[in-house]
Write a protein that binds this DNA or RNA. Sequence first.
RNA 1: GGCGCAUUCGUCUAGUGGCCUAGGACGUCGGCCUCUCACGCCGGUAACACGGGUUCGACUCCCGUAUGCGCUACCA
Length: 503
Amino acid sequence: MSKTNYDLQLSPVKSNIRIRFAPSPTGYLHVGGARTAIFNWLFARKYGGSFLLRIEDTDVERSGTDMVEAILQSMRWLGLDWDEEVVRQSDRLDIYSKHIDELIDGGHAYKCFCTKEELDRRREATNDKKQDYKYRHDRTCLKRDTDQIASLEREGRPFVVRLKLPMGVTSFHDEIYGDIKVDHRQLDDFILLRSDGYPTYHFAVVVDDHEMNITHVLRGEDHVSNTPKHILIYQAFGWQLPVYAHLPMILGPDKKRLSKRHGATSVGEYERAGYLPETMLNFLSLLGWSSGDDRELFNRSELVQHFSLDGIAKKSAVFDDKKLEWMNGQYIMQLSDQELLQLTLPYLKSSALLDDEFVARNRPYLDRVVALLKHRLKRIGDVVAMSGYFFQDPGEFEEKAVRKYWQDSEICAKLALLSTRLQELTEFDGEHIESVMRTLAEELETSAGKLIHPARLALTGVSFSPSMFEVMELLGKETVLRRLQAAMEYVKANRVTQETPGS
RNA sequence: GGCGCAUUCGUCUAGUGGCCUAGGACGUCGGCCUCUCACGCCGGUAACACGGGUUCGACUCCCGUAUGCGCUACCA
């Protein structure tokens, strides 16, 4: 009952909703940030609002310009398009300082000349728990008169600007978490403008959201506790509040906040490993949101169609790589052979399995190779490990399989016979190959498997592959005969060493 | 420590007081298909954190405890 019904309230076509994603360029776009971006984007697209991007680069130390482009790149990869020019906080320093003056003039904020060292000392001197120290307890600098302040400024003493916290309680409504109340005693005269002239996150967020006419703030749950501070700033300005909706966090398998030590966390890493953007979009959407029914697979437009704030959970979610893998497999299977080939090519080329010339000449062959592999791939990058024998004769044979399939004393004779029969075959296709092998197996009074497995090892070097008949057809008669020959030679050579004592 | 928020199978989740003998998905286990590996299909496994209330009736509402996470910075 507490949630707003946007479906009824808003036109599905066009609305005044303005929403933003505001990453700080201190690293690549990680999956948690991506999930926030996705929810914002879905919300905007669903209700015909505008989706904006703002780079929060007020931390000069940790921000990197190259990170900005990397983040935008990941956004594009995910298909999250934004509607207006990207806003950078570092371009807006004059705006913040203009607004800070407004607050100081209005008596809502004040300059503070206390140094960090001084504050540490005071914190240390607090008898109670250290965390209990609050600047508002002494407000040393709020007590200074204008002359004093002017003279300190003339001396060139660095200062920060603090919010003059009113007493009382701030409560607000969160679309996900409901009503939240915080007593100002928990807060402090927190800093709005740092001594280097840069705004703090709290100040910049409020000024920008207001200036950009942001109507809805959809961000991580870690900001719930910050929201009262932001509201206090809005109130100091007399500005109208946006609607708040906080999203549950994404955790690692150990239930700790997702971080580097959990392995891959940036969307770029998933991209490189061969996850599809469709997969990431779908999977991340399901982390903390559900449509309400049993559906799991949603394409982009279906997500837009079904998305709703009502479906968002309160509980933080663990990122499950296994489910991601499964889902990626599902999306890979939906790809056409041509699309799959296009995606696998970069991996194949960089592995030196094939080059441009080969690609140009063997298009149909490659289409069929990926078609055979399609149901086996979890990640596009897996193609390299699974397709070697389509491009090169096996250099070695899987040891365990050799022991299992080639220890038969008759094996060479069988392979030779198979080779002969295949050579005689005029129509070298799967169907005919199958009948040759099955017939031969019958003649030899053995099962087809007893022929197929050794042949697979000979042709691929490993014990698993797609259908042997189809693989043979694709490889072509010449290659098949050559590899069978090589296998027989290997077996003979291997026999000799086996007879050597001590081996 | 203080304050805030959360708590359904291993994981993602459905559930808004009787529809719950708690549903689906991933994983896992077993089987089928089968030339192997996959795919696919069938079946099994497994959860309401705990304790008090409220109610004719609680997974659902209230209180407490525990646990986890967040904020408590001149990081965002």
